[in-house]
Design a protein around this nucleic acid. Structure first.
Lengths: 219, 219
DNA sequence: CAATTATTCAATGGATTTGTTGAATAAAAA
DNA sequence: TTTTTATTCAACAAATCCATTGAATAATTG
């Protein structure tokens, strides 16, 4: 193998990986799977994809070693292949959010719309939890909470938020979080709670980012 | 903007960035530019692209804020837009090399072919420089050396290697490096020097990785 | 065993990406 | 000014990607 052939092999391989990531539907699937294992059915329900289309995208991700699958009864469950890929995906989306003006604008507009301008960073959160009385609220579906959540968080799904608000004290500040910067659940939670007189902010990032942070600390 | 529109905007934007990276020719250009500024002409000379084709790929990279250009006289010089992108690219290729079996095999086969199995990591290099008498040899073209090189390295281009070997002592160990793991210059240097009786190994990574490392240390 | 359910496969046509060709620019040299 | 040189633009055909459709598969239920 000469120099040119080698280069071609390497760049073709790298480009193949990038191609697998170069599609909005697949990115949305990846973001979902970074919460934990999901069935094809649940992926179809939260994205707007047809069943066959979602399945095809999943095959592409599988062929590129990004996701793996496991069959149980009628259902096939998909998950990300390892934490290293998750870390890479975080890096990429963090870069995109901070360096691509268009994306930054979109994200900020969304945040403004949702009363969440003064969001809390992961570092701030750590300090706040040690020093103050804050209630950390995981607003993802309970199934995702059960697969893993930020230490000390309680699970309050969006459904519960809409019916059972009286349970919480209005004195402590509430920090709501969900799946990461692209996820709108926390924004909606902030909106609902603010309208009902609670002190509430959202976490800038979400559970996957926190988990990556933890993994890095333990190295 | 509702939740679905927001998601679409974010994932479309992210996918657009990935698309810009999802092409082997563009990746090779990026790798070249991570050495420093290059004219279109020099990009055409080291890649196998036609002039018009290279120019088109450069436009795609420019539209996606990955490279910037500057005109001087007849020539247009391109360079990466900032160090953050370079860090991202490093992350991506590091992931690809370590997690994609096919790429890992290709890379290792190449290294074996070139006698460079026992390569030196950046961390090892740091220790070796402090403790031992090693000669750190930058085998990239001199123009790239002049734009920046690892502290303490001397420039020995491949041309010089082929004519002026006698200048170096055979007692000290030589570490050769070039542009990074995909770059084959260091492998060729190791081959030549080994055949001539020198003690020589290659650096696992290259100048761009070293530079990123330095930037991280200074934060 | 037949019916049902969740997922995958295969085929189709429309959209996008790619490399090539040759013409158009724009700056420097003659 | 005309000519030369380096780069970009525009148009085209080939290749690839994508969503949709309907059939095929494989595990479970009746």
């Amino acid at each position: 193998m000469n120099g040119r052939e080698f280069k071609n092999a390497m760049y073709d391989g790298l480009a193949k990986l990038m191609k697998a990531l170069a599609n909005p539907a697949r990115l949305e699937i990846i973001e979902m799977l970074s919460q934990g294992e999901k069935s094809v059915e649940s992926i179809v329900n939260t994205t707007n994809l047809s069943i066959a289309n979602a399945s095809q995208h999943l095959q592409v991700l599988k062929q590129n070693n990004i996701v793996k699958s496991r069959k149980e009864g009628h259902y096939v469950y998909y998950s990300l292949v390892n934490d290293d890929f998750m870390a890479l995906y975080q890096q990429i989306s963090k870069y995109a959010i901070s360096e691509i003006a268009e994306l930054e604008r979109t994200l900020n507009r969304q945040r403004e719309d949702n009363y969440a301008m003064n969001s809390v960073s992961l570092n701030e959160l750590e300090v706040m939890i040690q020093n103050e009385n804050v209630l950390l609220m995981d607003v993802r579906p309970i199934s995702e909470y059960e697969l893993g959540h930020i230490t000390g968080a309680i699970s309050v799904s969006m459904k519960e938020l809409l019916c059972c608000l009286k349970d919480f004290s209005k004195e402590n500040e509430i920090i709501a979080y969900c799946r990461g910067p692209f996820c709108v659940l926390a924004d909606e939670a902030v909106k609902i709670l603010t309208e009902n007189g609670f002190k509430v902010r959202r976490l800038d990032e979400g559970y996957p980012e926190w988990k990556i942070n933890q993994l890095e600390k333990n190295q």
